[in-house]
C-alpha cells in the first residue's frame, strides 16, 4: 500500500509541511519498504484557487490510500473522500515520524476538514 505525507523537503527526514493543498512536496511512501517518491507540488503552491482539490487529485492518481498532513480544508477533504482516501490531520514532526506513527496504528482518521475554506 501507499500513503501520502505532506513534506517541506524531498526526504523521509524532512519536516512535515502542515499545509495540504499548498505543501511544498508530497511524499508517496510505501510504509513497509520505505520506498518513496517525492512529488513536487509547486504548481499547487502558486495556484490561484483550488490547490487542495488539485493536490487531492494528484494523491489519488498516485494510488495513495491514506493522507497524513497538518491541515486539510473542506474542498480537499471532499475530493479525498470521493477518491476513497483516508485523512489523518494534525500531523507534525518529520515524514519518518509520521510514517512510524501510521505503522504503529497511532493515528486517528479524520471525519471532516480541520481548516476553513480560504474565502
Amino acid at each position: 500500500m501507499k500513503i501520502a505525507v505532506t513534506s517541506a523537503g524531498t526526504q523521509l527526514e524532512s519536516e512535515v509541511d502542515p499545509r495540504f493543498g499548498r505543501a511544498r512536496y508530497i511524499l508517496i511512501v510505501d510504509p513497509e519498504t520505505l520506498a518513496f517518491e517525492a512529488l513536487d507540488n509547486s504548481a499547487n503552491v502558486s495556484a490561484f484557487q483550488g490547490s487542495g482539490i488539485s493536490a487531492a487529485t494528484m494523491v489519488s492518481d498516485k494510488g495513495a490510500e491514506v493522507l497524513l498532513t497538518g491541515y486539510c480544508g473542506p474542498k480537499a477533504y471532499l475530493t479525498l473522500d470521493a477518491a476513497g482516501i483516508k485523512v489523518v490531520s494534525d500531523i507534525s514532526g518529520t515524514v519518518m515520524d509520521a510514517v512510524n506513527a501510521f505503522k504503529n496504528g497511532k493515528v486517528t482518521y479524520a471525519t471532516e476538514a480541520n481548516k476553513d475554506s480560504h474565502w
Binding site: 495556484a47 484557487q49 487529485t57
Partner: peptide, 19 residues
C-alpha cells in the same frame, strides 16, 4: 479548468460551483 472547479478522481467527478 484553470480554476480547479472540476475534479475527477477515479471515476467520480466533483464540481465546486463557487470556484
Amino acid at each position: 479548468c484553470r480554476f480547479n472547479a472540476i475534479a475527477v478522481v477515479g471515476k467520480k467527478v466533483l464540481v465546486f460551483p463557487e470556484l
